[in-house]
Design a binder for these strands. Structure first.
Lengths: 195, 195
DNA sequence: GCATCTGCCTAAAACCTTTAGGCAAATGCC
DNA sequence: GGCATTTGCCTAAAGGTTTTAGGCAGATGC
């Protein structure tokens, strides 16, 4: 009976790999046990239950994503920061679709409050420092940015933009250009013209 | 042995109700059988399998959503159409979270091509007729609109904007104002200033 | 060298999915 | 109306996932 040397952290890492390979939805305690070559019940010494496993994978993904975003943001400001930050999300989702899906997992409020999710919010606000927005506009802008990033990336991941012209990269660039322009002129929405 | 009068369509409708009550993820053939007061195996005369059930609920949701959007769009143009269309999505998601989640269910390509999903795409393009965009900008704009609508609604549904000032409705209105302004000035992104 | 602890095991119950085969009610035909 | 067929729901059963309980052996500590 050779010991496999399992820990909750290692299981979360293996679970994250599994998520990228078979999809976050398909990650089960059973599948994870098969992957690490151990009987199912053995995992319950390390994991409280199935939701606990998913939560750990989600936290891992949120942290990885926040680390990469922080790296990308270092030394950048304005549109440069905006684009670098956005690209981190998109690239991460494409390289690690299962982990990205995990990052969307609905955590209970206390867990969420202690997660890297708060770093994400802070970094989004940091980007907006380059655009000079006061509250409550800053919050509106945070929500809009989050919506576009998450919305675009998840639609792209769902295959929405694939295999049809123009290239998705082109639309992404245009979306970021548009956001930048929007943030620079935030205060001047202009009246709706009557054509 | 009283017959319950089940059909695939009726099961999809009951499944949709169930999704709104317990969440789309939790809709199982078993739960549906309990709800309609029938043994589990009986449903397999009407449904091919569990995925088939979810697919039918998804198609139903897509169609309901498309019907409402078409109603909202009738007789409107420009920003008026944009806001009405967007509100349909947001209101539907808040009134029927399970169905909205179902509408996100990944259909296989053939099913998707035959679904009401294509009407959604057509309607989005119809809105853009009020903004005078040529290809490929129209496609870029379709993708951006879809991203903002879906992104905002799903973040709001996930509880992202709840219980924190300012009100989510306010941010939504500002987001739509911003989109409208963006679409009106699509061709003028303007150069990035060096501060 | 022995006691304890830890890590993985077997066993088992509960639930979900899916298939196979049966019986009775509804339907259609003469 | 009587009979055959079809239809609709049933029981039975196998396979998979989740979770708990209890056991045994290897690692750790004095």
């Amino acid at each position: 009976m050779v010991r496999a040397g399992l820990t909750a952290d290692r299981l979360a890492r293996v679970g994250a790999e599994l998520a990228d390979e078979i999809g976050f939805e398909q990650v089960t305690v059973s599948a994870l046990a098969r992957r690490v070559g151990v009987k199912v019940a053995s995992l319950y010494s390390h994991l409280a239950n199935s939701r606990d496993l998913k939560t750990r994978i989600a936290l891992l993904a949120l942290e990885e994503l926040a680390d990469r975003a922080a790296d990308a943001l270092a030394g950048r400001a304005g549109k440069d920061a905006l684009v670098a930050f956005a690209d981190v999300y998109r690239d991460y989702a494409r390289a690690h679709p299962g982990r990205y899906a995990a990052a969307q997992f609905r955590l209970d409020p206390e867990t969420a409050a202690a997660s890297a999710g708060v770093r994400h919010a802070q970094m989004t606000r940091a980007i907006l420092r380059g655009y000079d927005l006061a509250e409550p506009d800053q919050t509106h802008a945070v929500r809009l940015l989050g919506s576009v990033f998450h919305g675009y990336v998840s639609l792209e991941l769902a295959g929405g933009f694939s295999h049809s012209a123009p290239d998705s990269q082109e639309s992404w660039t245009r979306a970021l250009d548009a956001l930048d322009a929007l943030l620079r002129n935030w205060r001047a929405p202009g009246p709706s013209p009557s054509p």
